[in-house]
Design a protein around this nucleic acid. Structure first.
Length: 562
RNA sequence: UGGGGGAUCGUCCAAUGGUAGGACUACGGACUCUGACUCCGUCAAUCUAGGUUCGAAUCCUGGUCCCUCAGCCA
């Protein structure tokens, strides 16, 4: 029994399993479903996937892998009014990009329409479903409230033959949209409102993204979902907490239908992240209200947005692993996501120098037409990443923030009379500054020490500060997009959430970087030293002008001191 | 005020009757050709009141608070 075909990626002996894995483990031990584990990720193709979906994807695909099972991708496309092919394509892309593979197990609830219909007929024949002619409004009124039971529909006890006839004519298109529904005959007095004769089918003349105009009746989620799961031989149907109340209905349908198996529904708490919103409705509003540039705006918590921002699949998967899975409502600190991407990129990203907000430095004792070449490693801790050549000249740019005319006590960057190191090049000392009429510094004058070539002093003297720099004449301009959190408050999940939009969530700069970066591939990530991690934008970069998105800043303990 | 869930450091997750532990954050410090990374350290929690027990975050009873459900959405 305990043979280890299931060892690869197995978690069975590792750190404490979450409650879902604990259930699955014990199901396997008891031999339930023959020890098989088949999960599914069932998105509705009515929007883009976000990091919350990534949690579910990692859970479902992760479990399948760990238990040597499989995970299906199934589009839950039972509402043609909202669903589009554009969304199914983006969803597939996102899942593949995250590193998961559904192999040949790609399904659509719409593939099961005929079977679902036959099951409905079966329920009618057994007197467990009926056609109801009440209007939507009347249905609502009869449903009762949280504290009062509902009233039975006057159509509840229609003869089977009449129900059969009516339902077939519903399918045939004889009735108007909304004029009738098929309902399960369960219990109008149930304290669980989902059991008060829920609607199974509605009449809806809308073109479906896959079935076109073949159908004018569509099954509801509650009816289609358990059947779809069962038809696919799903063993564990993992969903979010709000479906907990639906589980008795899920089970009722499966118990009353001759389905091949009865999957177990397990609910977990959805992901919430601080400083952002996660509901599709709110994200859609941001897109449609042009508060962001689209679903893939780098400020969006969508998979596409995170990708454009420079997040890696590895980091997202790691993040999902770290946040855990439980049943209590929670809000994950955005700082954890940021920590995870820093950790990943620290290892992977090549270091280069880019001066975000340039100010000119003139090295007065450096020959006017001399150009030197310095070979600087791409990564201080990983020589296998190689190195690049950086050109040095008499006039360079440094960061505006790296100079203070009247330095504060702990400031150990450039200031009049102070010596600093230019990364990989020379020590320089500031002699004086030139200002314009408005009092702004336009030139910083320095001298360099030829005996510090390469960045180390022959006499062993130390400097406290090391600055990044770029040759004024041999650097290239790039567009840099500095992103910050989308919202100004930790929890913007109120109706007026747009009031909390951060007006400074995007700042666009023209910056100067090493000329070698002109060949940067889109989506490649770099660390701009002392600034942060940046990623060549996959959409707006052109041959003439590269655009870099700031993925995340470096931790900055200096900024905190200030 | 019906039903279904949930309450552990500031935040997330563990501990399943036997020393409340880890991660993130924050704050110190060491190191440093990135004020990064790394390393070390500090602060910090069992919703509440009873009960069972040698022993309770865990079991029992009462209370409190939070989430969720009244779509022909999923």
């Amino acid at each position: 029994m305990e043979q280890d075909a299931d060892n690869k990626g197995s978690i069975e002996n590792e750190k404490p399993a979450d409650f879902v894995r604990t259930i699955i483990k014990s199901d396997r031990q008891s031999g339930k479903c023959g020890g098989k584990v088949i999960t599914r990720f069932p998105p509705e193709p009515n929007g883009y996937l976000h990091i919350g979906h990534a949690k579910s994807i990692c859970l479902n695909f992760g479990i399948a892998k760990e238990f040597s099972g499989r995970c299906h991708l199934r589009f839950d496309d039972t509402n043609p009014e909202k669903e589009e092919t554009e969304y199914v394509e983006s969803i597939k892309d996102n899942i593949r990009w995250l590193g998961f593979d559904w192999a040949e197990h790609l399904y659509y609830a719409s593939d099961y329409y005929e079977q679902i219909y036959r099951y409905a007929i079966l329920l009618i024949k057994e007197g467990k479903a009926y056609v109801c002619d009440l209007s939507p409004d009347e249905v609502r009124q009869c449903r009762g409230t949280l504290t009062e039971p509902g009233k039975e529909s006057p159509y509840r006890n229609r003869p089977v033959a009449e129900n059969l006839d009516l339902f077939e004519r519903m399918r045939a298109g004889e009735f108007e949209d909304g004029s009738r529904v098929l309902r399960a005959k369960i219990d109008m007095a149930s304290p669980n409102i989902n059991l008060r004769d829920p609607v199974m089918y509605r009449i809806l003349r809308a073109e479906h993204h896959r079935t076109g105009n073949l159908w004018c009746i569509y099954p509801m989620y509650d009816f289609a979902h358990p059947i779809s799961d069962a038809l696919e031989d799903i063993t564990h149907s993992i969903c979010t907490l709000e479906f907990e109340d639906h589980r008795p209905l899920y089970d009722w349908f499966l118990d009353n239908l001759p389905v091949p198996c009865h999957p177990q529904q397990i609910e977990f708490a959805r992901l919430n992240l601080s400083y952002t919103v996660m509901s599709k409705r709110k994200l859609l509003e941001l897109v449609e209200g042009n508060h962001v540039s689209g679903w893939d705006d780098p400020r969006m918590p969508t998979i596409s947005g995170l990708r454009r921002r420079g997040y890696t699949p590895d980091a997202i998967r790691k993040f999902c692993e770290r946040i855990g899975v439980a049943k209590r409502d929670s809000v994950i600190d955005m700082a954890l996501l940021e920590h995870t991407i820093r950790e990943d990129l620290n290892e992977k990203a090549k270091r280069v120098m880019c001066v975000l907000r340039p100010v000119k430095v003139i090295i007065d004792n450096y020959p006017e037409d001399k150009i030197e070449e310095f070979e600087i490693p791409y990564h201080p801790e990983n020589t296998s990443m190689g190195s690049r050549k950086v050109l040095f000249s008499r006039e360079i740019y440094i960061e505006k923030d790296d100079f203070m005319e009247e330095p504060t006590k702990k400031f150990f960057r450039l200031a009049p009379g102070c010596e600093v190191r230019l990364r990989g090049a020379y020590f320089i000392t500031c002699t004086n500054v030139k200002k314009n009429g408005a009092g702004e510094i336009v030139e910083i004058h320095c001298t360099y020490d030829p005996a510090t070539r390469g960045g180390d002093a022959a006499d062993g003297r130390k400097v406290k500060g090391t600055l990044h720099w770029v040759s004024a004449s041999r650097s290239i301009p790039i567009e840099v997009r500095l992103y910050e959190r989308l919202f100004t408050v930790e929890n913007p999940n109120a109706d007026d959430f747009k009031e909390y939009l951060n007006p400074n969530s995007l700042e666009i700069l023209t910056s100067m970087t090493e000329s070698g970066l002109k060949d940067a591939q889109t989506e490649s990530c770099y660390q701009f030293e002392r600034q942060g991690y940046f990623c060549a934008d996959m959409r707006d970069s052109t041959a003439g002008k590269l655009v870099f998105n700031r993925t995340v800043t470096l931790r900055d303990s200096w900024a905190k001191k200030k």
